[in-house]
Structures are given as C-alpha cells and as structure tokens.
Write a protein that binds this DNA or RNA. Structure first.
Lengths: 217, 217
DNA sequence: GTCTATAGAGGGATAGAC
DNA sequence: GTCTATCCCTCTATAGAC
C-alpha cells in the first residue's frame, strides 16, 4: 500500500477513473504516484500489465469490502438500495468506473479484456449468490435465470457509471427510477395467496421458451 | 457518403467500434478510410471533432432507422425483443458500442462528453416516448418515472454492449435473462381484475417516497 | 481538395549509473 | 530499487507544393 508498487497501483486506479483509458499512460500514472516513470516497467513490465493488475486487485478489494452488505440484503429492495449506496461510494473509490474504462480499452488490448472479465466476474458472482438467495421466495424465481440476471445487472451498473461521467444528473434520475421500480418487486412479494396464485398461473402460461430473435433488416 | 468527408465519418465509426477510443487516432482512421491523414484536420479541425460528429450523426441515422420498430412495439415484451434485435444488429452497424467508447473518452475530453450526451439523448427520447405509450395500461405506470427509466435502460444497453466486447457469451446470457424477465411484465398485464386490484393496493402501500440513500462508510 | 514533409509533443520501453 | 538519459515510435497539427 505504501511501497512504490502500491503507489503505482493506486495511481493507476485514480488516473483511469479521472482521465479515462485514453488519458492513461505510464508517465501520467507515475506523476500521479510521485515516482519515476521507469518504475512502471521495472515493477509491472508494461502499462497494460499495471492496469490489469490494478483493475483486478481493486475489484477484489472492493467486492470483499462490500461482501457483508451483500449478505445483509434481505430483499431485492435492499439490493437496490445497496446499489445506490455503491453508486455514491463509487464516486470516490470508483472501481466500477475503472472497470468501464478497462472494458473500453479491451477493444485495443486483449490482455485488458481478460482483466476486465476477471474483475467483472467477482462482482457478478457476488450478485449471483445474493440474487439466488433473495429470489428463492419471490414469484420471480419461477422464471429468473440468476446467472444471466447477475450479468445483466452488473453490465447495467457499469453502463450507468459510464453515463455518470457525461451526465451526472441523468445517471441520478436513472437510479431513482430503478428505486421506484423496486417497489413493484416489494409489492409482488407482499401479495396475498389468491393474487399470488393468479400471478403464478399467468407466469406458467406466458413463460414459454422463445426462439432466438433474428437481426432486423 | 462517398466523398472524403463521408469516408472519414464511416471510418471513424468502424475504428471506434473495432479498436476502441484508445486505439483511435487520425492516422488509423485515415488509413481505414483510404485517405490521407492530413485530411482529417482539413475537414474536421481535430480528431475529437471528427469523432464527435461521427458519433452524433451515426446515432441520428440509426435512431431514425429504427424509429418505426419502436413505434410498432405493442408491449414491453415487444420492446425487449426489439432490444435483442438491436443488439444483434449492433454487432455490425454498432452505434451503441461507439457510444460506449465515446462515453469512455469523455473523461479525457469534455467535447466528447457533449457529443456522447447528445447521441444518448436521441436514443433516450425515443425510448421515453415508447415507454410512455406502453406503460399507460400497465400496473407499472402507477410508480414508473419513464424519463429516469429510459435513461436507465439506455445506460444498461450501453453497459451490455461494452460487456459484449470482453465476454460475448456473458452478454448473450444477460440478454436472455432479461427476455425471461419480460414474461413477468407480460403476466402482470394479463392479470385478472381481482389480482390486479390486489397488486394495485400493495403498490399504493409500498410505493412511498424514500429519502435519498447515504454513502456506505 | 489533396498531397508531402515535418515540426513538436508525448508515448513505451530499455541501458546503465548509483 | 531507483534514478537519468535516451531511443524510437506514434501522435496532433500545420506549412506549403500541386
């Protein structure tokens, strides 16, 4: 944390978050870390390797840091509230914004793609575990594929963090709308037995497998 | 379309989509367009201006191209199917992946932020119009803020397109999960009057305004 | 409008002194 | 481990011939 290696990792995170993948270079990172530029290559071999390691390590650290909060979530509503807290927290500690930048850089560097995949997997598996637990008692569990759902939620979160960089107000209103929507889930869970049975029946009737869609002309 | 200007705009889109913002430069774009590098500056003044214009123009063109499909959507289920078609279509024509890259570049260049905001606004307003129309008859309309919801959906789509670049299979499963979830919406709309009334009552009870969340420690 | 040539800055990466 | 110095490349942007 305090060594040169740690300083570079921290500076890489801060630089990616603040200047984006396009503004991140060995010189910029080293300046932010207050160390010599050549040390990037001594400690990590290349800029891409430094970024990859910073991305993975930061994700591991933050997922670990929030694990208890994931475990404490007792409803989808709680999970969405946790999402909003995470969003506010990310403004400063921002691993997800970093993830978005590394994901963007993945197009020009396959090694970044691997790092982003690994970092995202940490968030996704935490989400999947939580969703599995929370959806057991919900009518949604009849149709939900939690593995895919966890990926969709994680990707959506990344998208919103990216959106935040260009339009903070818009991102805020997006989150607010999702929070409202969580009331629907809450209402579903609080449904009486009769209405629940009716919903169950409708779900059985409509939730049939559909063939994969074809591209528009 | 066929002139040098048009070739550069097309090449800028293709380069952003294939190599990302980090791999996009005047030289790379000009090579892809088959024209001289200096022409980037003659026609657009700077690389950022070329990217901005390409991003805006491509969004306008594609939103226009899909407008009829948005208008034809008769249910949220249709809208989600349209989303999957759009996703498949984007693999080749990819304005949304470009949007993600410009959004990523926004951190290092404010002019890119403005371009991304404008391009996103086109998608968002189309989505908002459609959501407004579709949600009128759904129980969801009681709690939904379509303006925020449209932004959330657009940002989520951007996130998934970005995710697609690093893990195509994961992105596919995310979409599949959302498609399953649309069955829930379908079921909600098909609910009988009694169950619908029960849901309505639960919604009125749970959908109270909550104070904004505070960051986690 | 398009080309060549080039200035000038910044980038990745390495050699070698300390 | 850290520093200076440097090589060589790519980048943006411009000047000037055609």
């Amino acid at each position: 944390m305090t060594g040169t290696r740690g300083k570079l990792l921290n500076a890489a995170i801060a630089t990616l978050r603040d200047k984006g993948i396009a503004g991140t270079s060995a010189r910029v990172i080293a300046t932010a870390a207050g160390v010599n530029q050549a040390l990037v290559f001594y400690h990590f071999g290349s800029v891409a390797k430094l970024i990859s390691e910073a991305c993975r390590e930061s994700a591991a650290e933050q997922v670990e840091h929030h694990r208890q909060q994931f475990a404490r979530a007792a409803s989808l509503d709680d999970l969405l509230t946790l999402g909003r807290q995470l969003h506010a927290w990310q403004r400063d500690a921002g691993n997800v914004a970093v993830l978005a930048q590394v994901l963007a850089g993945a197009r020009s560097d396959p090694s970044l793609a691997a790092a982003a995949r690994q970092a995202l997997t940490l968030w996704i598996s935490e989400l999947e575990t939580t969703l599995d637990r929370l959806l057991r008692t919900s009518p949604i569990s009849e149709i939900a594929d939690t593995a895919g759902l966890a990926r969709a939620v994680a990707a959506a979160f990344v998208g919103i963090e990216l959106y935040e960089g260009a339009d903070p107000d818009g991102a805020e209103s997006a989150f607010a709308a999702l929070a409202q929507l969580s009331a629907l889930i809450k209402a579903l869970d609080g449904l009486g037995p009769a209405a629940r049975r009716a919903l169950h029946n409708r779900l059985r009737r409509t939730a049939t497998a559909r063939p994969p869609p074809r591209p528009a002309s």
